[in-house]
Design a protein around this nucleic acid. Structure first.
Lengths: 339, 339
DNA sequence: ACAAAAGTGTTAACCGTACACCCATGC
DNA sequence: GCATGGGTGTACGGTTAACACTTTTGT
């Protein structure tokens, strides 16, 4: 790669060859930035750590009164990421521990009115005739996903129109936000397996059990403590701080920290790693790149990353899609298996 | 995932809680869609298959005369992907075999003028003061990457202002297009390892040698023919058609086909797989998600996918980042190693 | 002592890798 | 027959996955 113009930026991406005259410059297309914010909190019933996210109640017509993702129009003097951070602050008053662009949603149909929108996932097909409601301008939403530390999120009380919900059990949502969230969830779960984003939910120091709890909560499956520890240690992702936790009524656990901090904004390129059965992503909605896992997330900037997973097809190299991390479900607290 | 409002679409992503009045609705922010188009052609010197991509010469002021990615403004009645396809047709007259959203680039600085744009990769930092050139509206570019079949691309002759270049040896580019291409290249190479996008360069039938040639060209390393074949076969990615190629001056090779076709548009969630040393992505530019591994690419729609790779950090599960595919470099045509 | 969780060891199965070797065809 | 890929066999080594076992603390 020969970066001739080092640090080139700016970019109008011009229709260089187009002899097009004034041509409709985004006539009527608005740009919004939305955010999917994740935090871990104990489940009200089981008490197990679970994924939660905040939604805001709409106070305008299209979908008035329904729940939607926090977001807003992009300001002319504001970067996309900055806009996402501003939304985060505004709705939850907490700082992001991890932030990354998810995807740009721009179907013509995903406009304002909750009209027809016939059926079937966003298939290529032909542009369906617009519903009656003529107004409602077209909006392209660039969505970011964010991780916030659990205890921080706990402090932030729900505001007037803001409320936290369990990510896997949401109320009816406005627009295509259910698909967006499904995609974000998929990305989070996928990326957790190859990138060190778990620290997005943790503080600077933590025990192996806490780290494992994050993985178990996000991946929704139990992990073998012994294998999990070894993998985290041998992967060089974490290192012991030397300190311990006392007063636990059992052997005092050692505290660990991540060797490298994850940023919160640029596009990144992550090396893919593994993946379990690669649960097919939500059929309808989301972006493409995400599968993969990509691994990666340099600037958190561009790119869906990676290693995301595909709708179903494995890849050539995908021959051995095998489990990973602490693997197996292990008896744990249920049944008289062990001992 | 409880899809309450099945197939919800539309979406203005409203600043629901915002009590903001008329507030600057995208005052001056324009939306463009650009495309990074890849095709394989033999290298003029070595004759080896190499990655090429078409660029267009700018005919307007910011960066007049320089090479840039094909693209144009988003039409109000056009989907993002449709816009990308239109650009592809316009510049190369070929059909896409694979198409996926790469990332949305929207830094405030990446505007029109090739002014200051100080230095350093797009770091969070504070918004640098705008250069003198007051005009040049701000543009947010949603970039797609596309794969076209080699022989098709070969037919398309270079137009007036369109010319194909070797992907790893490009001329100075306008705007931040060099970073965008670097990111797209990273994504292509990364995704090839876990998704079946190789068919984006091939026809319906091909020999193992041709398929391997695609991998070797994109990944820029030789693969062991024996192991490569086994992996492709056992991964169920391809299957023999029963037909053979004759007149080869050696044992006639069997023809294969992919078991599943890759689409060309929705966001996808791809299961991550492996990755070699996970070459760090280009520092400056790109998106975040891309790294990794990611896996997945449902709709080609949203999300960087995958398995992208990260700038450097491996993931927890990334413990065993090992090679894959046919592996090793193998003597091949050089030196008297074999036989 | 006992419970409970932290942490260590061990082993079988699987997969990636390397590389020797056989096969089929044109010249 | 011989050169040239196409295609098969196989053994080594590293990693994963499962699970038994030891350590350390509070009560």
């Amino acid at each position: 790669m020969r970066a001739v113009n080092a640090n080139a930026h700016a970019g109008t991406d011009i229709w260089a060859t187009e002899a097009d005259g004034p041509e409709g410059l985004d006539g009527g297309v608005e740009l919004a930035v939305s955010t999917v914010i994740f935090a871990l909190r104990p489940h009200p019933e089981s008490g197990l750590m679970t994924l939660w996210l905040p939604l805001v109640k709409r106070i305008r017509e299209p979908y008035l009164g329904q729940w939607a993702l926090p977001g807003g129009p992009l300001r002319p003097d504001e970067d996309l990421e900055t806009s996402a951070r501003r939304t985060l602050l505004r709705t939850t008053s907490v700082e992001p521990r991890y932030l990354e662009q998810l995807y740009a949603f721009g179907s013509v149909e995903r406009s304002g009115t909750d009209a027809p929108r016939t059926s079937g996932p966003a298939q290529p097909s032909s542009p369906p005739p617009q519903p009656e409601t003529a107004e409602a301008a077209r909006v392209v939403s660039i969505v970011y996903w964010v991780l916030v530390q659990s205890d921080e999120a706990a402090r932030a009380v729900d505001g007037e129109n803001v409320q936290w919900f369990i990510a896997d059990d949401l109320p009816p949502l406005a627009f295509d936000h259910d698909e967006i969230i499904a995609y974000a969830l998929w990305r989070l779960r996928n990326k957790l397996e190859y990138a060190q984003i778990a620290q997005g939910f943790l503080g600077g120091e933590f025990t192996m059990a806490q780290l494992r709890e994050v993985y178990e909560a996000v991946l929704q499956r139990r992990l073998d403590p012994a294998n999990f520890r070894r993998q985290m240690i041998t992967s060089k992702a974490v290192e012991p701080t030397g300190r311990k936790v006392t007063g636990t009524s059992h052997r005092p656990p050692v505290l660990y920290r991540f060797r490298t901090r994850i940023g919160a904004a640029a596009p990144e390129h992550v090396p893919r790693v593994r993946s379990r059965s690669a649960a097919a992503p939500p059929p309808g909605a989301a972006p493409a790149e995400a599968r993969s896992r990509p691994a990666h997330d340099p600037h958190r900037g561009p790119g869906p990353d990676g290693p995301y997973h595909d709708p179903g097809t494995a890849g050539p190299a995908a021959s051995g899609i095998t489990p990973d991390l602490g693997t197996r479900t292990r008896p744990h607290t249920e049944g008289p298996v062990r001992r």
